[in-house]
Amino acid sequence: MKGVIVQVGDPKSIVLFNNGKIQAIPTPPDCHMGMVVTVKNNNAIKIIIITSIAVLLLALGIFIGARYWGTDHPPVEKPWQGGHGHGYMMERGR
């Protein structure tokens, strides 16, 4: 992003950027009015944050997976409760 320094100040100078933004940036060395500056967006912080979020989500996914599906749950056997099932009809027939 290119811009031109429109007001020199200490510690920050005002820059008119070619995307229409007017921003204050730390005053570069040998700064003067009319100086053309190029500012590169620093994506390092963005990358670190996105990577951290991705890692956290992955870890959460693994944890949930291991907690609910990873362990072996044997089928629960319940005692016969009676009622109108096959056994009842057979008993009645006898």
Binding site: M33, G34, V36
Partner: peptide
């Protein structure tokens, strides 16, 4: 000529 260009920009900024 970078210096000349910056001088012209500077003059315009003063007018602005």
């Amino acid at each position: 000529n970078k210096a000349e260009e910056e001088e012209k920009l500077s003059l315009e900024i003063e007018e602005i």
